[in-house]
Simulated scan of single mutants.
Amino acid sequence: MSAAQDQLEIKFRLTDGSDIGPRNFPVATSIATLKENIIAEWPREKEDGPHTVKDIKLISAGRILENSRSVGECRSPLCDIPGGVTTMHVVVQPHETKPQTDPKQSKCACVIL
């Protein structure tokens, strides 16, 4: 394999249409590593950025990419043009917030007869 085939140039498209990258990544790079890179490079002016790898879904060629797979395993022969830039779409999952319950409010009701 040539050096060009050992690397992929990838840019990450955010939901507002802006991009992170493009940057070159070895084909052996895991999807989890790509997500860590996105977290590190997330634009500071954007609110609701991801905090962990689990907050991000990466989509390429219509498929959600699994963290344990490598970039090379996720390549699509139809979408990846040799020497071109691969675009992966980034979806940030909303943070789960547990509703605060008032300990004074009881869900039980007693009926006295």
Rank of each mutant, 00 (worst) to 15 (best):
P82H: 01
T86P: 00
S68Q: 13
S76G: 08
I38C: 08
K54R: 15
E73W: 06
D19H: 15
K98R: 12
E9G: 04
Q93G: 06
G62V: 05
L8G: 00
A32D: 15
Q5E: 13
S30Q: 15
P94N: 07
P77F: 06
I64C: 14
S68Y: 13
A61S: 14
I10C: 04
K35I: 12
A28C: 10
D102G: 06
T86N: 04
S18C: 11
K107M: 07
R69A: 13
R75V: 15
C74T: 10
L65A: 07
D16G: 01
V111W: 07
D55M: 09
S18P: 05
N67H: 15
L113F: 07
I81C: 04
E45F: 08
D16K: 02
D102A: 09
L65P: 04
L14Q: 06
L78W: 06
S30H: 15
P50S: 09
D16P: 00
T15D: 10
D80W: 08
S60M: 12
A4C: 05
N67E: 15
S68K: 15
C74I: 08
D80K: 03
I56R: 00
I10G: 04
T29N: 03
P26D: 08
I59Y: 04
L58F: 06
R13E: 12
F25R: 00
P94E: 13
P22T: 06
K46G: 02
I59G: 01
T86W: 01
S106I: 07
I81W: 02
A109L: 11
K46P: 01
G49K: 02
S2M: 03
L78M: 08
F25L: 01
L65M: 15
D80P: 00
H89A: 12
G84H: 01
E36I: 09
D102R: 07
D16W: 00
M88F: 10
L8T: 03
S30P: 09
Q93N: 14
G21T: 03
V90Q: 04
K35C: 11
Q5H: 09
W42F: 15
N37P: 01
N67M: 09
K11S: 14
P82T: 00
R75S: 07
I20Y: 01
I112A: 07
T29E: 05
E45I: 08
V90R: 03
Q93W: 05
M1E: 08
T33H: 14
N67Y: 12
C110F: 10
Q105W: 01
K46I: 08
P103R: 00
V53E: 08
L113Y: 07
V85W: 02
K104N: 14
K98G: 06
I56C: 03
T15S: 14
Q100E: 14
P22I: 05
A32G: 11
P43E: 07
E41C: 12
D6S: 10
R69E: 12
T101A: 14
G17C: 03
